[in-house]
């Protein structure tokens, strides 16, 4: 405590520290400097100068100063007026931006504000945007992209809390899903029926339209086995491969001693 002394010399005395502390508190509140204290007067003037026109609308450029006209007498009243004015202005600006940004989409200049002020609203806009993209992807004949986008929209939907919004968006996603399923499988079912038993194209329906088309196409195989033993063939075919492997392994081995033929020659 009684360590070093202030620059001006003299002892560190607690009374002086308390006095200085009080003075700084008062100046910090914007109170006028006590009479006869030059440094306090400077500090007060400095603080006042820094606060000049703080209440101006931050969005617009400051009004071309009318400094001389401004009354300087009401020292205690002015800060209050300033605060009140600042509250009014900021409330106006914030409400305006707040309302404006509420409906802003990702492409809007207010989008950043939307994300800050209305995070859920922002999420909803993102989902709507994703659904829109999915719709146009589907219309443009890019079903895979549409499916990915719908999946993403559905994932995002879990973070939306408002039940009616969730219902609405989920309905939109569902509708698009049905459209997607309706457009994609049409080429697939046509192929399996004719012949091509080995290539019944199980992979292609399994890839995308799993729930719908394959369900109806899988039953047929069971009645047929008698008439077409070929269907069973795929199973033996697999064992066949290992049977081939020795022969395939053999050619690979000779590959190693390639030099020998040269020697033989």
């Amino acid at each position: 405590m009684s360590g070093r002394t202030p620059e001006s010399g003299g002892e560190v005395d607690l009374a002086a520290i308390a006095r200085d502390d009080e003075l700084l508190d008062a100046l910090g509140r914007g109170d006028p400097a006590p009479e006869g204290d030059d440094l306090a007067a400077m500090l007060a003037a400095w603080r006042d100068d820094l606060g000049e026109a703080v209440d101006d609308d931050p969005v617009r450029p400051a009004t071309p100063a009318l400094p001389a006209v401004r009354p300087r007498r009401v020292r205690l009243g002015r800060p209050l007026v300033r605060v009140a004015a600042a509250v009014v202005v900021l409330a106006g600006v914030a409400t305006g931006l707040g309302i404006g940004s509420r409906d802003a989409g990702p492409s809007s200049p207010l989008w950043a504000l939307t994300q800050v002020l209305h995070p859920e609203q922002a999420e909803v806009r993102l989902i709507e945007d994703t659904i829109r993209q999915a719709r146009s992807a589907l219309a443009a004949g890019r079903p895979d992209e549409a499916r990915d986008l719908l999946d993403e929209a559905l994932r995002r939907l879990t973070s939306v809390e408002d039940p009616s919004t969730v219902r609405r968006l989920a309905a939109e996603i569902d509708a698009l899903r049905r459209d997607l399923v309706a457009t994609v499988p049409t080429p697939a079912p046509a192929a399996p029926n004719p012949s091509a038993t080995p290539t019944t194209t199980p992979p292609s329906p399994g890839g995308g339209t799993g729930p719908q088309a394959p369900a109806s196409s899988t039953p047929p195989p069971s009645p047929r086995p008698s008439s077409s033993p070929l269907v069973v063939v795929p199973v033996p075919e697999l064992p066949d491969l290992p049977g081939l492997s020795p022969s395939s392994a053999a050619p690979s081995l000779p590959g190693l001693p390639l030099p020998t033929p040269d020697i033989l020659d």
Partner: peptide
Amino acid sequence: VAALLAGLRP
């Protein structure tokens, strides 16, 4: 938010 900013800004 508006009130908080109004208080902080000066």
